[in-house]
Design a protein around this nucleic acid. Sequence first.
DNA 1: TTAAAAATCACGGTTTACCGTTACGCATAA
DNA 2: TTATGCGTAACGGTAAACCGTGATTTTTAA
Lengths: 217, 217
Amino acid sequence: MGKLKKIKVHIADDHRVLIDGIVAVLNNEKDIDVVGSSLNGNQVLEWYTTNTSDVLILDINMPDIDGIAVIKEFNKRDFKPKIIILSSYDEMKLIKEVVKIGAKGFLAKNCTGDQIIEAIKTVCAGNHYFSESIQRKITMSFSESEVNENKSLPKPLTDREQEVLVLIAKEYNTREISESLFISVNTVETHRKNLMKKLQVKNVVGLALYAHKNNLI
Amino acid sequence: MGKLKKIKVHIADDHRVLIDGIVAVLNNEKDIDVVGSSLNGNQVLEWYTTNTSDVLILDINMPDIDGIAVIKEFNKRDFKPKIIILSSYDEMKLIKEVVKIGAKGFLAKNCTGDQIIEAIKTVCAGNHYFSESIQRKITMSFSESEVNENKSLPKPLTDREQEVLVLIAKEYNTREISESLFISVNTVETHRKNLMKKLQVKNVVGLALYAHKNNLI
DNA sequence: TTAAAAATCACGGTTTACCGTTACGCATAA
DNA sequence: TTATGCGTAACGGTAAACCGTGATTTTTAA
């Protein structure tokens, strides 16, 4: 023993029991050492100001700063660990973005303990790691985006549209929105109309759900 | 050793890594034995047709049959283990219902491994177990409901109301809902009205968000 | 069996959402 | 310079949501 340096891992997830669990799983691995953990995004960033690790296992949904924002913040810094995203089912649509901004691995939360270990060793060796189910999703989403460049292309929302969208999702009606933003009712209706067209939804319900799913509220 | 019978535990959660984690945590406990696990509600019910355990750690959100429904099903059967609910933040409003239908414990997913062990031993001894944060929620909701019997008490939704709610959250309008459920438009409007009153929201946006936050869609 | 809860429906009235279309000033990129 | 995108605004019409109230039947639980 003691021949190789152990892989240092930091775990960030707002569910402590999950952290404890992963720690317990990794404790059986001689090559891996859990050197820290965080319950939210701020803790992660703070921890890395005075510490380092080889690998960061990162949850996407966290109370304050979400996983995506954490990665983006790392990208501005000198030091960035190899990042493995730990996600639940419904966040899989984020795979692309997450890979694009620099995550090295992606694990669904329904993975096994062994897969975590494998993922850690893989990314630490400089490779990418994606669980099977994820890999399927990726190839699917790629083929989709090639076939369907125009339809499913999400025209980006303008700043103003986002503001209106958020207020709609806060159960504001048109008049209330117009008063909040100091614009006319007609303008708000135009924005709402354009939002529905861009996001391809039938009514405010669709808008609200979009806002919620995309963490705009 | 070997003086006492070990406590047999079954764990049900759709995130396998969480199961693996809890198993790893519990493996350090000599008095506790994890005898089975399930990734969804159906697996739980099936497992218990041919097996038993002292304690069942049960997630609320599962793909097919949710935790609530699992408990209700147990209530119709001969055998029921002591049930500890494992929930995330936003499901805490379900505490009351869950306790009423017979859960013995309630753990937030941000609890520690030690708390899980404590919870298992407590409910196994015939007592109830609630983590601190949960206990606060309970006392809060009780005091609220005493002061304010009509306003903040979350009256449970009826089956029909849930059906309507789901369709609203799928961007159906009233006519479409009435045709889907083979009832009159007036009835749908009544249900929607009652939903808004019960959930204390201003419009369909609030309903849709409630549905989404509670994984009804 | 009896009371309570749930599901059904009606109706008139008010407000809001939704739709299509047009248009103007402004900034910025081709 | 011209085209494009954005934010703003208007208008007339239709559809749908929202509100209050009351009432009947069916189902469920005490």
